[in-house]
């Protein structure tokens, strides 16, 4: 639905974008500030970047966060895809309503509740079977998989619904067994959605503070936990530098994902037009 954009709408749009971006632009600018006190300008400098790269603590947190995020994204994509296939392509089955509820609930569940319940769960499990004796890497990864698989499932569900079932039906008509249809037709066509689902799960994990704080143990500081413990006491120039790097990396990743999605959409549109032209 295109149409004329009134002056009021243009003003609101401009204000909205300014509201979104000015805080982040200021954050980036002040990361190049020489002064130790963040809002007092002391000239341009890369001092805080230098300091950041020399901090052992920061490197360890980055490494831990990246490991958790990678493992999480891979398992969440796997589990989320299975869940989406079950919801969209398998018709009715026993427990479908409960299943659907459990997929949507983590999307809106307040983080404090998810974090708290997983912590008491891990502690109870430890009492019962002696595992996990120590909380940290494994417990954070399990917690992240649990909530990010829901986000992946919703992404894949939308893609599965969007791409229709025509090709699958055609393959079945030509004699392909259902399992073959899944591996030869459905999964390859899902690839762009799988990539964006993986990236989504990856960033969700990198971004999570509250749930990780609940289920972590001594010594296992993820990057958000480290950042939070530092900024609780006020503004810190080294965190501005760290934030600038993170924002830059994420912006590049999102841009790549957006281009991939746009291409897929164009391809779909062309396929549809071709199909319509022949039919």
């Amino acid at each position: 639905m295109y149409g004329k954009r009134s002056r009021f709408l243009t003003i609101m749009l401009t204000l909205g974008l300014a509201f979104f971006y000015i805080p982040m632009i200021m954050l980036v600018i002040y990361s190049f500030n020489y002064s130790k006190i963040v809002p007092v300008w002391g000239g341009w400098s890369l001092r805080w970047y230098n300091e950041l790269f020399q901090s052992q603590e920061v490197w360890e947190a980055v490494s831990l966060s990246l490991q958790i995020a990678t493992l999480n994204a891979t398992f969440a994509t796997l589990l989320g895809t299975l869940a989406a296939l079950a919801m969209v392509r398998f018709g009715r089955f026993k427990g479908r309503t409960l299943f659907g509820g459990m997929i949507v609930a983590p999307l809106v569940m307040p983080e404090v509740i998810t974090g708290l319940s997983l912590l008491v769960f891990f502690i109870s499990l430890n009492e019962l079977i002696g595992w996990p004796a120590q909380r940290g890497f494994t417990t954070i990864t399990i917690a992240h998989i649990t909530f990010s698989m829901a986000f992946v499932a919703v992404t894949i569900q939308a893609r599965l619904t969007g791409m229709g079932q025509d090709l699958e039906e055609a393959a079945a008509d030509l004699g392909a067994k259902p399992f073959k249809v899944l591996t030869a037709i459905t999964l390859p066509r899902l690839t762009p959605a799988l990539v964006s689902g993986w990236l989504l799960a990856f960033t969700l994990s990198l971004d999570d503070l509250v749930i990780a704080s609940f289920v972590t143990g001594p010594g296992a500081n993820t990057l958000p936990i480290l950042i939070f413990s530092r900024i609780r006491l006020g503004l810190r120039p080294d965190i501005n530098a760290l934030a600038t790097i993170i924002i830059l990396v994420i912006a590049v990743c999102v841009a790549i994902a957006a281009i991939l999605m746009l291409r897929q959409q164009r391809r779909d549109l062309r396929d549809q037009q071709l199909a319509a032209g022949e039919g």
């Binding site: 805080p23 990198l206 971004d207 958000p224 006020g234 503004l235 924002i247």
Partner: peptide
Amino acid sequence: LLFLIILPFWTSFLLRVYAWMGLLADQGT
């Protein structure tokens, strides 16, 4: 425009809150 709206949605939540600490502080922007 859509990309510009989605981008902050992907950037770190914690850092977006931190950005406002810099704007709102007594000696802030």
